[in-house]
Simulated scan of single mutants.
Amino acid sequence: MIELRNLEKRYANPQTGQDFYAVRDLSLTFPDGQITALLGPSGCGKTTTLRMINRLIEPTGGQILIDGADVLAGRPEALRRRIGYVIQQIGLFPHLTVEQNVATVPDLLGQPKGKTRERVRELLGLVGLEPAQFAHKRPAELSGGQAQRVGVARALAADPPVLLMDEPFGALDPLARDHVQDAFLDIQRRLKKTIVMVTHDIDEALRMGDRVALLRGGELAQFGTPDDLVRRPASEFVRQFLGEDARLRQLAGLRVGDLARPGDAAGLPRVAADLNARSALSVMLREGAKAVAVVDSEGQMRGVVGWQALEQA
C-alpha cells in the first residue's frame, strides 16, 4: 500500500521572494491491487506527485510510505528497482532488441539469464506480442501501440508490487489507445498490481481507475471511485471539470458483459461482451432498440443489457 502524508513540493520564486507550491499538504492512500488515476488540469501537481513517489523529484515536506516503510530513508536507486515505471514516450533503448529491453531491470538485479529469458517470453505473451515474432525486433520496427506494450512488459519484468504510469497512452492514436488500454486492463485483472496513473484524459481516468484523485492547484479536490465523482461531486469545481456528460464518459469504462442479465434476446441487436457500455448505448440508439443481446467470443449468449441496467450501472 502507498500512503502520502502531508506531502509537499515547494519551490522558491526568486522574482517575488515567495514560495510556490506544486503540491501542498497532500494526503492519500492508494489501495493495494487497484488502479488509482491522478487527474486534473495542467499544472495541478499530478506528475510532480507521481515523480515524488519514486524520488525522481524530492519532496520538501511530508512522508511517502510503501508497505509502511518510509521511502525517503533509503537510496533512490534501490527504490526505483522495486517500482515499475511507464511513460508516454516509452523510452525503449533503440540499440537493444525487444527481449533485451524487457530484460533490462532483471539484468540489473542480477537475476539468472535463463529465468529472465523465460520471464520475458511470458510477459510478451501477456501483453499480446508473440515472442517468436517480436523478441528479436528493434524498437524502430514496432508500431506505437506495440512499443507501448513493450514498455508495459519492461515495467512488469521484475514483478514490482507498484507500477507508476505517467500519461502512458497519450501518444497513441484513439484506436490503438483503446486496444492497448483494453489489453492493460486484462493484464491488471490477472496481476492486481498497485498502480498510480497520471492522466489528463477524463474518459481514461473514469474508464481505467478503480479510484480517481482529482487535483487542483496542488491540493486534493476529491478522491473516490469514478461513481463517487460522477454522482456525488464534492464541489462545483469537480462537477464542472468532469462536465455535464460525465455519466456518458463513465459508461465507457464498463463492459456490457459485466452488466448482462438473463432476458429475452429475440430481435435485439447483438454486441460482444467486451464492448463498453457507452458504445452499446450508441447501438441501442442507432437501432431504436430497448436493449442489446450480449454474446461472448464464441457467440454464446451472455444475457441482455437495457436502458435500466445502464442507468443503474
Rank of each mutant, 00 (worst) to 15 (best):
I187A: 06
V71C: 15
D245S: 07
G253V: 02
V198W: 07
Q250R: 15
R119W: 05
V180M: 13
N54Y: 10
Q100I: 07
G128Q: 14
R286M: 08
Q308P: 02
E130F: 05
A78V: 11
Q63D: 12
T16G: 08
R51A: 09
L206A: 05
M301K: 00
Q100W: 12
Q133Y: 09
Q111I: 01
H95E: 15
I57A: 08
T116C: 09
A147R: 02
S297G: 05
T16Q: 07
F30Q: 00
V98T: 13
F241S: 04
D32A: 09
L92P: 15
L124W: 13
D182G: 14
L185R: 15
I83A: 08
I87Y: 14
P14A: 02
V71L: 13
R231S: 12
F30V: 04
K290E: 09
H179A: 15
I64W: 03
D25W: 00
V238R: 12
Q308T: 02
R138D: 01
A153F: 04
G125K: 13
S235P: 10
V162E: 05
V105T: 10
E204M: 03
L215V: 05
A265T: 02
L109R: 11
F169Y: 05
P31Y: 00
M284E: 04
F169R: 07
R270E: 07
G299Q: 00
H200P: 01
N101F: 11
R231I: 04
D67T: 00
E236H: 06
M1I: 08
L175A: 15
D201F: 02
D32Y: 02
Q181S: 10
P106S: 09
Q146H: 00
P131R: 12
A205N: 04
R278C: 04
G43W: 08
Q222L: 08
E236F: 02
H179M: 14
L124T: 11
L72E: 07
V86W: 15
L156C: 07
L215S: 11
F134V: 01
L191C: 13
D166P: 09
H179I: 09
D228L: 13
G45F: 02
I202E: 05
R189A: 10
A265E: 06
G128M: 14
